[in-house]
Design a protein around this nucleic acid. Sequence first.
DNA 1: CTCATTTCGGTTTTTTTCATACATAAGTCG
DNA 2: CGACTTATGTATGAAAAAAACCGAAATGAG
Lengths: 395, 395
Amino acid sequence: MAQMTAVERTRLPAGPTPGALFDLVRSGRAVTRSALGTATGLSRTAVSARLDLLLAAGLLTLGEQVTTTGGRPSESLRVAAEAGTVLALAIGRSRHQVGLYDLDGTEIASDAALHRAGSSAPDLMPDVVGLAVALQAAHPGPPLLAVGMSLPGAVDTEALTSVGSPVIPGWDGVPLRPFLEPLGEVPVWLGNDAEALAHAELLGRPDLRDALVIKASTGIGLAVLADGRLVRGHDGAAGELGHCRVPAGADKVCRCGATGCLETVAGGWALIGERTDGLDHVRELVALARDGETEARAAIRRAGQHLGEVLAVAVNLLNPEAVVLGGDLSMAFDPLAGGVKETLYPRTSELATRRLRLLPSVHGERAGLVGCAALALDHALAPAAIDARLVATLG
Amino acid sequence: MAQMTAVERTRLPAGPTPGALFDLVRSGRAVTRSALGTATGLSRTAVSARLDLLLAAGLLTLGEQVTTTGGRPSESLRVAAEAGTVLALAIGRSRHQVGLYDLDGTEIASDAALHRAGSSAPDLMPDVVGLAVALQAAHPGPPLLAVGMSLPGAVDTEALTSVGSPVIPGWDGVPLRPFLEPLGEVPVWLGNDAEALAHAELLGRPDLRDALVIKASTGIGLAVLADGRLVRGHDGAAGELGHCRVPAGADKVCRCGATGCLETVAGGWALIGERTDGLDHVRELVALARDGETEARAAIRRAGQHLGEVLAVAVNLLNPEAVVLGGDLSMAFDPLAGGVKETLYPRTSELATRRLRLLPSVHGERAGLVGCAALALDHALAPAAIDARLVATLG
DNA sequence: CTCATTTCGGTTTTTTTCATACATAAGTCG
DNA sequence: CGACTTATGTATGAAAAAAACCGAAATGAG
């Protein structure tokens, strides 16, 4: 009966909105009715009213038992993982991965394929989307709520396109939305690869507030997390770590056309270029390093040293609590982190590094794809999005 | 009559709180009742209820002129400048300034004095506070609502003390609240000098979202503004620009004990150290430069070049819309900015600098003091503080 | 100059929402 | 098993906000 009147109303409760409660549940900060009450300051009545909406819409479900301290156990709430899916599309320079995730962030299925480095958007996008469509078809289920997608380099999240990236020709300024048409009328969120990595990191460490998330692979990118928020910059071009100048690269020409970029001495493409055995990809170099090949380990260590030089400035500037190393190169964490430490610590203020931690990315090899899923989930399940979804189902 | 019931109630309206409306008025985003209605989504009734509280508490007053488009002109609202004052205390290495400001940010009076560089907190603080007390006594008026204070180096805003700063010995870890007792039971907000500068900048350019605010004086500091918020870092130690390493300083020992810091080639203390005429302070060097002395201008230009090298990394990383040059050195804006440009632009990505502006700080010589006032005002007039003040007057 | 028009803002009425109070459910502990 | 503790559903009353209504203050057309 109360359910009926709830469904009939057209406006959403004010103040702490249902979406805000949903977010508390999703982040795990409050998962019971009473915890939600104390967290929001709302009365049980008001909390229940909002939860009724969320439960009726199928966005939340009742979880299992909760440990009790002598009284009636509270019902725990959790995100209805099966209420929808999101699609993750991680596009790299030579490889693309697609993954289907539920609302919990649990992977339902994923696939990956290699492509020719330098493939243009019109060449590659149909393949990527085809893979995604096939994945969806093979795993029919709840509706697709959002797509999260990552590209190397700077992106324009509004126009859904890569911008000013000399690194992936054939993509710059090409609107990508048309290619995504086979997926239906679904919102698409685009980020660059380092940003996606940061989202994955936040999924695994929700309490991270200030961090630098590095993606060290063929190129070198970075995402800045300040007070829990991703810094995108005025043109969405923040995080250009790879093309900062380092003295050691002074006479080396970068693929961006400039001279002296960090990438020329620490980028994956430069590292394999230094070898005489014609490796195809950094991953092969990392594999050698993990097998114990001395020269590969030394090369990665040197890359870490150069990376540390530039990171020192970033650490002095932003005083993060953690530097997260991700990307293919970070799979050889010890030599890379070792090199970073050698140059980072001597060049930073004691105060800024006293509590600084150097961490490997939580999701390792899958971080890029998980990050795209997290990107989609963070937008699709944002408080405002949840509220919008509620008014849509109620109106 | 409606006024009476308003005063009698004890709880504040929910949703968009009176403090939120106050903030819209203060920032100028909405200064009429109807504008506030459309900005918040509240009905005119709800807006009026909140405004009644704010007007009754004397925090807002009715303004005058409003352009009308054929209908009844709306009453404009403005912050009741005379409802209180804030005190600004800007403590530098060799000079301290105090200022009394109204809630509009208009200066009522100010004073300044030189002190021996290296004075300890117990030595200096009584003088500073004494100056402030004298200023208050000379200009009796509305009650003091907050104190904004700035120090060079990293600060602990909670403990109200300087932290880990090798630059101002005799301050590190000394709690400053006891010294401020003569000012009464007033909230005190501490920031570092560059932070204060950023607050002053935001006062003059409220639409600034992403910027680097430089304080180039005896030392070199920086404040990072990301998405309109100040980045303080995990330990409040963000902004250590002056002690980033530059190649040119490789063999020069910094006052922090390290070698190769930016300050050794671009800090004010280093610039006057290079001179043979025994200048006492950068301000004298700047005065010479403004008078056209070639060598002084060249020195400042070289400092700008070194500054630009480090800024290049920061710009690549954060993609700000503006780099604001403040501090004593920036009073010689042309040579400093010229030097910065020479090294900054060639070392940054085209995308990050396409729309980048290099600006002088809005308040010039007074920016430090204005920044302290802005720091106090931003906290004293924050939505939450306004709401707290309302419940205090109503309860 | 008068009057329609437009927009603003105060007042009253009605609806909605929330908190308090009460009742009930579901466990633990002695 | 019953006292106790905690959690949640259900009514009732109070408060706040929106809607409707009305007066006020300007412009501009005739």
